[in-house]
Amino acid sequence: MIIRQGGEEDVPAILALLDGAVEWLVANGREGQWGTEPWSARPKAVERVRELARTGTPWIAEIDGAPAGTITLRQQSQDYVPPADEPEVFIHLLVTDRRHAGRGVGAALLAHAVTETRRLGIGLLRVDCYAGSDGRLVDYYRRNGFEPVQPFTVGDWPGQLLAQRVQALS
């Protein structure tokens, strides 16, 4: 696996990963996270991905030259979570291709986020996630070094804000 910096040219690949995740979630009865309609079929979702690719730094994990996952990092949180009172890196759109489940793609992208946060000299890495489905996604982030900060809701969507302290290089 390699992790490379992406850009706006990777929007189609990011959308394909998101569409695949929606398909998997729906097939497993977990429509609450992202609904049932592919991201690529929703103009607002497509624009959100484009905006994140323009204003953040997308990273693409590749296995055998094909996208296996993506994460976008920005020094700004989502508008529906409280802003941090210090500089931060915020994780947007972590998604992996389920065909590579169990190969550590998500964990590698999260470790890369920690490395990038450290490289920038920033001590706070935050992420928000879907808190439904018995908190499975929250547990995933906890296993990867994040601690819950506060729950929130957007409409009827239950979310959880999580954070990880990143130590500066010495």
Rank of each mutant, 00 (worst) to 15 (best):
T70A: 15
I71W: 01
I71N: 02
T72W: 03
T72G: 05
T72D: 07
L73Q: 06
R74E: 10
R74C: 12
R74M: 14
R74G: 03
Q75Y: 04
Q75V: 05
Q75I: 04
Q75C: 14
Q75W: 05
Q76E: 15
Q78H: 15
D79K: 10
Y80I: 07
Y80A: 06
P82K: 11
P83D: 14
A84G: 09
A84T: 12
A84L: 11
D85M: 10
E86H: 08
E86K: 12
E86T: 12
P87V: 08
P87H: 07
E88W: 02
V89T: 14
V89G: 02
F90R: 08
F90C: 09
F90I: 05
H92Q: 07
L94R: 09
V95S: 12
T96Y: 00
T96V: 14
T96S: 12
T96A: 13
D97V: 04
D97Q: 07
D97T: 05
R98Q: 13
R99K: 13
H100D: 08
H100W: 13
G102E: 00
G102D: 00
R103K: 14
R103H: 12
G104P: 08
G104A: 07
G104I: 06
G104K: 08
V105R: 06
V105S: 06
G106L: 02
G106E: 00
A107P: 03
A107K: 13
A108G: 08
A108F: 02
L109E: 07
L110N: 06
A111Q: 13
A111H: 10
A113I: 06
A113D: 04
A113R: 08
A113K: 09
V114D: 07
V114W: 03
V114L: 04
V114T: 12
T115N: 09
T115D: 15
T115H: 11
E116F: 03
T117V: 02
T117S: 04
T117C: 08
R118L: 02
R118G: 04
R119L: 10
R119Y: 03
R119M: 05
R119I: 01
L120M: 14
L120S: 12
L120C: 06
G121K: 02
I122E: 10
I122A: 11
G123E: 15
G123Y: 01
G123I: 01
G123D: 12
L124K: 06
L124R: 13
L124C: 01
L125G: 04
L125Y: 03
R126C: 01
R126E: 00
R126P: 01
R126V: 01
R126L: 00
R126N: 01
V127W: 01
V127Q: 02
V127Y: 01
V127A: 15
